[in-house]
Amino acid sequence: MKIIEHKILTQFSPAIVQFIRIDPEDISKTLLEILKDLMDLSWLSKFDQEFEQKAFRSRANKTIDDIKEKFDKCVNDDISKDAGEYVVSELARETMVSKLKYLDVPLAELLGKKRSGNPGFDFHSQNEITDTVIFGEAKYIADRTAYGSALKQILDFIDSAKDIEDLPELNTFCSRTALERVSDGKKGFSAAFSAKNTSTEKIINNITKRGEFQSLLQYEELILVAVNL
Rank of each mutant, 00 (worst) to 15 (best):
I203C: 01
D23Y: 09
F51T: 12
F193I: 12
K152H: 15
G84C: 07
L100N: 05
K152A: 14
Y140K: 06
P119T: 05
N228P: 03
S45D: 10
E109I: 13
S160M: 11
G84N: 10
V133N: 04
N206C: 03
P14N: 11
R21L: 04
K81F: 08
T200L: 03
D163E: 15
V105R: 02
R59C: 01
A192W: 00
D184W: 06
T95S: 15
H124V: 08
L103Y: 07
E85R: 07
R210F: 01
L216K: 00
E50V: 14
S125T: 14
T95Y: 01
L103W: 02
Q214W: 00
I20R: 00
R21F: 03
M1R: 08
I34Q: 01
E52W: 06
V17D: 04
I22T: 02
S13G: 12
R21C: 03
D166E: 14
R93M: 09
K152G: 14
E25D: 14
H124E: 03
D104P: 00
S190N: 03
I164E: 14
G211T: 13
M39D: 15
F173H: 03
A178H: 00
N197Y: 12
E169V: 07
N197I: 05
L9M: 10
Q126N: 07
S89M: 07
T145I: 05
I223T: 13
Q18L: 04
R93C: 08
K101G: 11
K186D: 10
I16A: 08
F213E: 08
Y219D: 06
L217V: 14
I16Q: 11
F193S: 11
W43A: 07
I207S: 03
A178T: 09
I129A: 07
V87D: 00
A55G: 10
R115C: 09
K152W: 11
D163R: 06
G136M: 09
A226N: 01
K36S: 15
K114E: 10
V182A: 06
Y147D: 05
S98K: 15
S175G: 13
T10W: 10
F51L: 07
D184S: 15
I134K: 00
D77R: 13
S116I: 11
K113N: 11
R21S: 13
Q126F: 09
T63V: 14
L91D: 00
A92N: 04
F19L: 11
P168A: 07
K46S: 13
N205D: 15
K99S: 12
F12M: 04
T145G: 01
L35Q: 03
A191I: 09
K187M: 15
E85A: 09
A15P: 06
D78T: 12
G211P: 00
A92E: 01
I3K: 06
L91I: 06
C174P: 00
S194Y: 05
G136L: 09
T132H: 09
E201Q: 11
T130M: 13
A191Q: 11
I204A: 03
A60G: 05
I27C: 02
S13F: 12
F189M: 06
L9R: 04
S175A: 08
E169N: 08
S80W: 04
I22F: 04
E52D: 15
A138S: 15
D72C: 11
L155F: 10
I204T: 06
P168L: 07
K139I: 12
T177V: 13
L155W: 02
A178G: 08
I154V: 04
E109N: 12
